[in-house]
């Protein structure tokens, strides 16, 4: 299908993936991934291990562009745009397998992201150092600010990635299993933070195995299985969906 601008008068969704296909040496990691994620809410993306969630994130952020299919940001096709350009359009992400800057401290991790942002946004009014402090405070890492990140356990390191992503003042944030490594109290706090961020207008696309967390914070959920989207709906609809139960929760459910 040739790409064309949607002619509907309504504003296009912030992020839209349409029939995204990615294969590795003949194996289809994603064969038909279609989803939307919009401003002001948390959208869930769930599915069993190996369903292609991280692959879809890589397709959206450009680390592994889709073979075919569309990735649209605000209606604009970005499926062949280079990763750093996409970031500059407002897409930020965290990584399932951590990609922190291990040789830098927590503070430096967030600061360097702000400094990178300041350079490409040409925004000289924001004090990125102060912004970094705020973000560190916000994700609850004040007490670890001076620690080198490679000495941190997984939970806090994930929060570093989150603060780092936020330092680029994104429009949409893709979060890849941010909840793993957090204890119950931390998860509670984290859920609150996600909801707050969404209320401030950020679009969040959340990949998470903690079903409870997903059901709690997401307005809409997409379910991916074997590279294709098998369901979408509200948390309630997803919980009732037979296909989802079969694929994701196991046939025993």
């Amino acid at each position: 299908m040739p790409s064309r601008k949607p002619s509907e008068p309504a504003a296009p969704p912030l992020l839209e993936c349409r029939e995204v296909k990615v294969s590795f040496g003949g194996i289809h990691a994603l064969s038909d991934a279609t989803l939307v994620a919009d401003r002001g809410m948390v959208t869930g993306l769930i599915g069993p291990n190996g369903a292609g969630k991280t692959t879809l994130f890589n397709a959206i952020t450009g680390l592994h562009p889709p073979d075919t299919g569309l990735v649209r940001l605000d209606g604009e096709d970005i499926s062949q745009v280079r990763p750093h350009r996409r970031a500059r359009m407002g897409i930020a992400r965290t990584f399932q397998r951590l990609e922190v800057f291990g040789s830098l401290t927590v503070r430096e991790n967030v600061l360097v992201a702000g400094e990178i942002w300041r350079r490409w946004s040409k925004n000289n009014e924001v004090d990125v150092a102060a912004q970094a402090e705020e973000l560190i405070e916000r994700v609850g890492l004040r007490h670890l600010a001076r620690e080198r990140v490679d000495s941190l356990p997984t939970g806090p390191a994930r929060l570093v990635e989150m603060a780092r992503a936020l330092a680029t003042n994104p429009r949409i944030m893709l979060m890849d299993e941010p909840g793993s490594g957090l204890n119950e109290a931390e998860t509670d706090e984290f859920a609150g933070l996600l909801i707050d961020l969404a209320e401030e207008g950020l679009a969040i696309l959340l990949v998470e195995h903690d079903v409870e967390l997903v059901m709690r914070v997401c307005k809409r959920i997409f379910v991916l299985d074997f590279g294709r989207m098998i369901a979408e709906g509200t948390p309630k609809e997803i919980q009732r969906n037979k296909a989802v139960q079969a694929a994701y929760l196991g046939t025993a459910a």
């Binding site: 952020t61 450009g62 680390l63 280079r82 990763p83 750093h84 996409r86 970031a87 500059r88 897409i91 930020a92 992400r93 990584f95 990609e99 922190v100 800057f101 291990g102 040789s103 830098l104 430096e108 991790n109 600061l111 360097v112 992201a113 400094e115 990178i116 942002w117 490409w120 990635e161 780092r164 992503a165 330092a167 680029t168």
Partner: peptide, 17 residues
């Protein structure tokens, strides 16, 4: 800082723009 960041994770740097 940018250099160290690039040394640690070029992929993450790209996703920061």
């Amino acid at each position: 800082r940018v250099l160290s960041a690039m040394g640690d994770s070029p992929a993450a740097c790209a996703t920061l723009g």
